[in-house]
């Protein structure tokens, strides 16, 4: 009867988005006569920050303040098409589409500004604070608002842009079947320290230590939040969530919060996180995606740590106390006291 400590390590290589059908997403950007811009998307913000990130990407590309961009994700019936918010694809796919749309809108904005200032559009630059001026001559300037008014009421131009991101089709090598279905990979490594009680089968996660490589973090606070919450969900997949007992027959399965268990605030552990930013060549400002990928390393790391602690290899999730006890019964309890590390 003892509690045994174990340590497990896992690394993952996570393709951003799906591989099917090019995994496209579209975006439309247009200005209002006030010089504010709207991004129209069908991509849903579940709370993960899609609106914040696409707003930043649009503002940065247009060269205007982030406060002057509004992101509208109102309606997938009327908005431009999106495959959805999953597979860590939002920042990368939708971000790229927004960037393309904002580039096109920026070109029209600069042409309209050039017409008002009677200069060549190539000689103009934005200052990021709501003004457009001749390079090297900041006094030859016009506000984005005045450009929008002129485009709307005098020039008869729509300052707008269309964007789509589509993963290029990968050729299949007829000899080997080899192909490159994904263009962008995020990476993570996680170390889990835990304790296994050989009498109850209970697993207590003590500490997580992780490094995540996810391209440029467009919004570092949102990235950190996603990593903390995502690894909690990884722990939940590894140790808690189950449609048992008679899956796939769901008649006796869990139906509500009482029966479908996930870790509570008393089950969490300290988590040290390092974020490595290696810009992705095809990501918007180098971004990949932290979304779903951050839950992945916790599952194998926890399974490995349990093996390290008590010598049983459980390959069916979740690793419930019952499965640990059954496996220990077959293998026999490890020697007590636990191994000295």
């Amino acid at each position: 009867m003892a509690r045994h400590r174990g340590r497990g390590v896992a690394t993952i290589n996570y393709p951003i988005g799906m591989n099917l059908g090019g995994d496209p997403s579209q975006a439309l950007v247009h200005s209002n006569p006030t010089g504010k811009f709207t991004v129209a998307l069908s991509s849903i913000d579940l709370g993960q920050g899609m609106k914040s990130v696409t707003r930043q990407i649009c503002a940065e590309t247009l060269g205007i303040p982030v406060e002057d961009v509004y992101v509208d994700t109102a309606d997938s019936d009327t908005g431009p098409h999106c495959m959805g918010s999953f597979a860590s694809r939002g920042t990368h796919r939708v971000g790229n589409a927004v960037m393309a749309a904002a580039r096109e809108a920026r070109a029209v904005m600069m042409e309209a500004a050039a017409e008002e200032l009677e200069v060549d559009p190539g000689d103009l630059e934005t200052d990021g604070r709501g003004s457009i001026h001749v390079k090297g001559a900041p006094h030859r300037a016009i506000s984005v608002r005045d450009v929008a008014i002129a485009a709307q009421f005098r020039q008869g131009k729509t300052i707008s842009g269309r964007g789509i991101f589509l993963v290029p089709l990968s050729d299949v090598n007829p000899e080997t079947g080899e192909m490159s279905p994904a263009t962008c990979y995020a990476h993570a490594c996680q170390i889990v320290d835990l304790e296994v009680d050989d009498e109850t089968g209970e697993v207590t996660v003590l500490k997580m230590t992780s490094a995540y490589e996810l391209g440029r973090a467009i919004n570092p606070k949102l990235v950190e939040q996603q990593l903390v919450g995502g690894s909690w969900m990884g722990m939940s997949h590894a140790l808690f969530e189950t449609p048992e007992p008679y899956y796939p027959d769901t008649r006796e399965g869990p139906r509500d919060f009482n029966e479908y268990l996930m870790p509570g605030p008393g089950d969490i552990c300290p988590h040290d996180i390092v974020v490595l930013e290696r810009p992705a060549p095809d990501g918007p400002f180098g971004a990949k995606g932290p979304g779903e990928m951050c839950a992945n390393p916790s599952l194998p790391a926890i399974a490995n740590a349990i093996y390290d602690a008590v010598g049983v290899r459980i390959d069916e999730l979740p690793i419930t106390p019952e499965k640990v006890l059954r496996a220990l019964k077959v293998r026999g309890r490890p020697e007590a006291p636990p191994r000295v590390r």
């Binding site: 939040q225 996930m262 969490i268």
Partner: peptide, 20 residues
């Protein structure tokens, strides 16, 4: 104390740590 106080409240996003 904080864990006890919020243990009847379910969160599915944050992993609880930021709330604590």
């Amino acid at each position: 104390n904080v864990v006890d106080a919020i243990c009847g409240n379910i969160c599915r996003c944050t992993g609880y740590e930021p709330i604590i």
